[in-house]
């Protein structure tokens, strides 16, 4: 009697034999992600010298290492913000059905499939000192000397926008299509103009989605590596944190320091995400439909 009721009570909370199906995935995650993660964290506390916190002390006292945090944030925060902000008006225009919508979506999304290296190569060809962009600018005499857009901050920034925008756009578009279109129509019949409809109805309902999108594109941009090396200035203005980690691990063979850099990277990301999601929790995050449908 009591055994039966225990099994029933467990089943009611979703605990039954079907749960075993989760096992393979759980083992996979455990061995390939969680274990290496803790191994790395452990490693960061075992440097060759300076006690358990030696690697961290080295990171934060060496300006060449410490400043990579700011360099990376300076690139990734504006890039993520621009990606989200630029996605909103375009997604708003792309919401309805129109001829050629699929083509436009495809063109907007293609950079995802290209990969960062190909994008970097394209940028070098297009924006380099003898690229089309500068040749056109010079031939119509807007500038006399080529504008420097590669091998510096702007090259990496543009690369982050090109590869990050499609993600942001697709996410924003799907959040936007989740908002009941009759809400805006209702607002229109109540006298709200186009801008007020956006500000008072669409934006508040979209804002939580924008916060999530920002977090995801930020994480993508924060771990930038290939474009920082290829179109950036990897020893100067675009020496991002992942380059520091790479240097520590494969140039200096200091695994403790490399792990410490990785942990710092994770903590910085967590702080930014926690801040954004903390702000998000102040927003309305419930249903985005206007009633029973």
């Amino acid at each position: 009697m009591s055994r039966v009721s225990l099994r029933h009570r467990l089943a009611e909370r979703g605990i039954d034999r079907n749960l075993l199906l989760l096992l393979p995935a759980a083992v996979f995650v455990l061995t390939l992600f969680i274990y290496p993660f803790f191994y790395g964290v452990g490693l960061s506390f075992q440097p060759k010298r300076g006690g358990p916190l030696g690697a961290y002390r080295e990171f934060f006292t060496d300006a060449y290492l410490r400043d990579t945090v700011w360099t990376t944030l300076r690139l990734s925060l504006p890039a993520a913000l621009l990606n989200v902000l630029a996605s909103v008006p375009i997604a708003l225009r792309m919401r309805g059905r129109f001829r050629g919508r699929r083509l436009v979506t495809t063109i907007l999304v293609v950079p995802i499939t290209l990969g960062t290296v190909l994008t970097a190569q394209g940028l070098l060809n297009f924006l380099g000192p003898t690229g089309w962009f500068n040749r056109i600018l010079m031939s119509v005499r807007i500038v006399d000397t080529p504008v420097s857009l590669t091998h510096n901050y702007w090259g990496v920034f543009l690369s982050l926008v090109i590869t990050g925008f499609p993600f942001a756009f697709l996410l924003v578009l799907s959040y936007l299509s989740g908002i009941d279109p009759t809400l805006e129509r209702a607002a229109a019949t109540l006298g709200a103009g186009r801008w007020q409809r956006f500000r008072r109805i669409t934006l508040p309902l979209l804002a939580p989605g924008l916060a999530t999108t920002f977090c995801l594109t930020f994480v993508l941009a924060f771990s930038v590596f290939p474009s920082a090396v290829l179109v950036g200035d990897p020893s100067g203005t675009t020496r991002v944190i992942s380059i520091a980690a790479y240097d520590a691990a494969y140039v200096k063979y200091d695994y403790a320091l490399a792990s410490a850099v990785a942990v710092v990277m994770g903590v910085v990301e967590l702080v930014v995400i926690a801040t954004v999601l903390g702000g998000r929790s102040l927003l309305y995050t419930g249903s985005t439909s206007g009633g029973k449908g």
Binding site: D180, T182, L183, R185, A186, G286, G291
Partner: peptide, 13 residues
């Protein structure tokens, strides 16, 4: 004009 929609279209937030 005032309009009442079939699904009410109340602003959920």
């Amino acid at each position: 004009f005032g309009m009442v929609f079939q699904n009410y279209a109340l602003f959920p937030h």
